[in-house]
Design a protein around this nucleic acid. Structure first.
Length: 185
DNA sequence: GTTGCGATTGCCT
DNA sequence: GGCAATCGCAACT
């Protein structure tokens, strides 16, 4: 069992909190994860809540793999699978390489607008449904632990959901200019 | 077979 | 801040 598999084989809320500051590489572009949300298997807001279906099957697959889904018929969003039926939604990334490629895909040169949202970062990094189920430790994906293990993390309510809205299962890098939205405080 | 609705974004006022 | 765009899926009849 790889270190990455062990890291993801724990509660999704812990994984979401600890993923802040990790580096995600997708092919020739990548950056630092600055915003996440946790979705537990027993969570009414989770795609997995009503059990396994063809769409959410990757959430019931092995940990340290990704689950990609279409949002609002337009966007792609990417999750990192944790324990069975739970996952972490990646909501924002601070771009740090492959900037020209990401700018071209996004149609803007505004660094803060490249990956500041779950749909945006998939477009910038070139993630679509063909990536669904891929492992995080093999090309084209590479996930590496934070260089600074003591990053300041803030939390808040998850965005865009209508059920189970109370838990503070959204996490962000404190003070980051690359979040999808500011955190209250 | 039909229907209702999103783990969003960008444009408009 | 409001709202349209857009479509696959799952939950109905």
């Amino acid at each position: 069992m790889s270190n990455l598999t062990q890291f993801f084989a724990q509660d999704a809320v812990d994984v979401a909190r600890h993923l802040i500051g990790w580096h995600l590489q997708v092919g020739d572009s990548g950056g630092v994860i600055v915003e996440t949300e946790a979705y537990r298997d027993t969570d009414e807001a989770s795609h997995a809540f009503r059990g396994q279906t063809p769409r959410n099957a990757a959430m019931f697959g092995p940990p340290a793999h990704i689950y990609v889904y279409r949002s609002y018929g337009i966007h792609w969003c990417v999750n990192f699978v944790c324990t069975t039926g739970s996952a972490v939604l990646i909501r924002a990334v601070e771009p740090d390489n492959g900037l020209a490629l990401m700018s071209e895909r996004r149609g803007t040169n505004d660094l803060r607008n490249l990956c500041s949202g779950p749909g945006k970062l998939c477009q910038a990094l070139g993630i679509d449904l063909s990536f669904n189920g891929l492992p995080l430790d093999r090309p084209p994906l590479r996930l590496t632990a934070a260089t600074d293990p003591a990053v300041a993390v803030v939390s808040g309510r998850r965005i865009g959901i209508s059920r189970n809205v109370e838990p503070l299962w959204r996490f962000g890098l404190k003070g980051s200019a690359f979040l999808s939205r500011r955190f209250p405080n």
